[in-house]
């Protein structure tokens, strides 16, 4: 995943150059104009999704695993992936305005799941503090914490940070998918409602 980001960046720059050439040399109008200008924006969103995927791969490498098993990151990730896939398919077919609106609706679900997951983490941290976890309390496995290098507190903070970054980036992937869907709707129907 991380190694693939350079290929995405290179493709993005090629497509950006093609869009500029089309605008400069062909002076597109009407549907052609909407296609080129919307594509110009969409490739930026896709490049950003590539960056976020790279981030997520990095978090996965650093994470120690399943401190919060009640948070279903796989489900959140699958939803974000579905949104990106549906948005790109709508763009590719150029005729599925229903799918564009579906992506926007799915984003509400994704946002709710991400917000819930974040609250779970925050609640856990509040409980950990109240139980005196910072001074040698217990982690989720009931294991005694110890001070010094490699303490449970430090491991906990590292895991929590990575988890919150992961949730945040998955939510952003969804936002970029909505952008792709919105621009696609603009191409298909000249409807800028989702863009706004």
């Amino acid at each position: 995943m991380i190694d693939g980001d350079q290929a995405v960046n290179d493709r993005y720059l090629d497509l950006e150059s093609e869009c500029i050439s089309l605008l400069a040399l062909q002076q597109p109008v009407a549907g052609d104009l909407r296609l080129v200008t919307a594509s110009f924006k969409i490739i930026t969103d896709l490049e950003r999704i590539g960056d976020l995927a790279t981030n997520l791969a990095g978090y996965a490498l650093e994470s120690s695993g399943d401190r919060f098993p009640e948070i279903d990151l796989t489900a959140i990730g699958s939803l974000a992936k579905r949104m990106v896939t549906e948005a790109i398919e709508a763009y590719a077919t150029g005729e599925d305005e229903w799918a564009c609106r579906e992506v926007a609706a799915l984003d509400d679900d994704l946002d709710a799941r991400c917000e819930h997951a974040s609250k779970v983490v925050v609640r856990y941290l509040l409980g950990f503090e109240l139980e005196g976890g910072g001074d040698g309390g217990t982690d989720t496995d009931g294991e005694e914490s110890v001070d010094g290098e490699g303490t449970n507190v430090e491991r906990l903070l590292a895991d929590v940070s990575l988890l919150l970054y992961t949730i945040r980036d998955l939510e952003r992937v969804g936002d970029h998918a909505v952008n792709v869907a919105a621009r696609t709707l603009y191409i298909v129907e000249s409807d800028a409602a989702l863009v706004r």
Binding site: V29, A30, G31, D32, L33, R34, S190
Partner: peptide, 15 residues
């Protein structure tokens, strides 16, 4: 007219 013409004939002509 040049961003989203009503008529398909106009769209085809100006593009």
């Amino acid at each position: 007219v040049f961003e989203n013409p009503e008529s398909q004939r106009v769209e085809d002509y100006i593009t």
